[in-house]
Design a binder for these strands. Sequence first.
DNA 1: CATAGTACATGAATCGGTTCATCAAAGCGT
DNA 2: ACGCTTTGATGAACCGATTCATGTACTATG
Lengths: 352, 352
Amino acid sequence: MAESANRRVRLRDVAERAGVSVGSASQAFGRPELVSDEVRKRVLAAAEALGYPGPDPAARRLRTGRAGAVGLIFAERLGYQFTDPAAPAFLRGIARGMQEAPTGLLLIPDSRYREEAASAVREAAVDGFIIYSVPQNDPRVEAALARRLPVVTVDQPRGADTPFVGIDDRAAARSAAEYLHELGHRRVAVLSFIKALDRAGTLELDLSVERLEGYREGLADAWDPLLVRTCRPNAPEPAREATLELLRASDPPTAIVAMSDILAIGALEAANELGVSVPAELSIVGFDDSPVATLASPPLTTVAQPHEEKGRLAADWLVKDIARGAGPGRRRRQAILTTELVVRESTAPPAS
Amino acid sequence: MAESANRRVRLRDVAERAGVSVGSASQAFGRPELVSDEVRKRVLAAAEALGYPGPDPAARRLRTGRAGAVGLIFAERLGYQFTDPAAPAFLRGIARGMQEAPTGLLLIPDSRYREEAASAVREAAVDGFIIYSVPQNDPRVEAALARRLPVVTVDQPRGADTPFVGIDDRAAARSAAEYLHELGHRRVAVLSFIKALDRAGTLELDLSVERLEGYREGLADAWDPLLVRTCRPNAPEPAREATLELLRASDPPTAIVAMSDILAIGALEAANELGVSVPAELSIVGFDDSPVATLASPPLTTVAQPHEEKGRLAADWLVKDIARGAGPGRRRRQAILTTELVVRESTAPPAS
DNA sequence: CATAGTACATGAATCGGTTCATCAAAGCGT
DNA sequence: ACGCTTTGATGAACCGATTCATGTACTATG
């Protein structure tokens, strides 16, 4: 097999060797039922002998106009994205949503430089995009839209004129805050992705703004902007530091709401470090209900959201739009999935 | 902008409208420095007016011969893959390894049917493959090799004639077993991915076989094939069930070694359920040192392996091979990364 | 035997760019 | 004015397949 080919083997070479036209050779691979057994056998043999790797995907794509893949545009730099415990569930959902269609998933490369990242979107060989939780002014969004391919947006940005899958972040956050309020907490700190009221104007509809707003509503009279701390990136460490500082203050909070379980874990670490017992002396509520929430000790009270379902639905819609013959999303579809406050053991009424 | 184009806009249309040749139009996009400001401006304006989405990636790829992406072939069906807490670290590593090269990562679609899965590999528009922990007889491996593109294999299959990144699974497993043995444990159960000595012949060099063999060596006189349990898939539940059964037996083990932290977590659940205290009455050792290991209570003693580094190195090698101008891996490179037994709080000497 | 029908092979057109050898025009020094 | 170098535009060749209208040979039918 494979007599050393120092030049690349093309379908034409195979056809020649098999003594048939390239047309027939192509059929032999692509639609075996259209050629005689005889020809097919000869072509396959010739391919084998020449070490032909099979029809070049790039050429096939050009001709057929189908890339056979969808692009995924992530919130953060790829490297960080995979520190988020919610990401796997989302990806799993996408994989399930694409079960039937034999479609690849292209993780679009990112870059420190925003314009470079946008180029990656422009140059991606895909049939459509899933935009996952991307800040609204990210140039990649515009780049994706400009491709005039089907697009589905998840979580963010809400503004984009595409089918949308997400949750009611404000209501979800509110439910967490209300719960603490009902338990009797009046000094509640917030671990946030963003600064309180950070240019609220420009960030309207931003997921973080919505959650913050939800916390404010839920906490009502107990809301105190001075107890809001910004934690970036979304990792335990910044949350740990913020919490240490909060707990060491003269009038420490009796409860903490965090915008992610990861932040909540960081808060938990800080509490352990200072010997503050949870939930007796400090209640903590997370967000996401990622797998770590159950594993933490104590298990975290948190706002559950259907990560996997988000992925599944987004993929499903996208695949269908692609099959239906492209064009950016037609009629405006939108799915707001339900969230639920899951009460575990990290919350209790404040020490009287 | 974008006067309704009911036909797809090609570069030719843009060139025409701008009053330049397609050659110049192409340059205007691809190498702006080769055309005058004047022309570039006209072309860009024409593109804008026509709603031109930019050069078609598929066409560009065909001509340039670069796909701008590498394919990732996963151990398991995509949907399951993302239940493995080690996967994110590995992906993170890949992302870091590809930092410099603006390269996408294509998750190759899988399928219930092995041949269909192999086709996906054949048709993937990529410049190379990373094969991640794939069983040795999987047809996708052969399909990838047949593409004659650069390939790097991680963990498995060891047999493939490509650059390889992995660990010494046998030694790593041995260290875990030896540790338990030294603590004095003599009845040690094993939670395995495969059946003991399952067709050892055909599965030589298999990761699971290696680990099992390592456990056997480390346990020495304490090795008991009857205490080996198969847990599939790699999830807490099967491990929980196996452990329940083990602990309820008349002569329960005093320790358990598991081939993954996930299985160890399942064992932990079972112990909790039966009120068996860990580590006082039962020691548990995991494998991977995934993030859940620290989170578990008690934190797991486990064999740490550098997931992220594996990804980083594999991506780095692959990117370089691609840059160097393809051809499957030349000289045989191999990196065996180091593992380390991390002792935490899930292990102790057996109750006397 | 004529006619229609079937089965299959052919090869040119096409997908949408990129590249490069040529050539024209402009700038420059003397 | 002349030769020489730069700068930039041109258009044809090419990347490697797929597809489809056309043609041929052979079979079935009446």
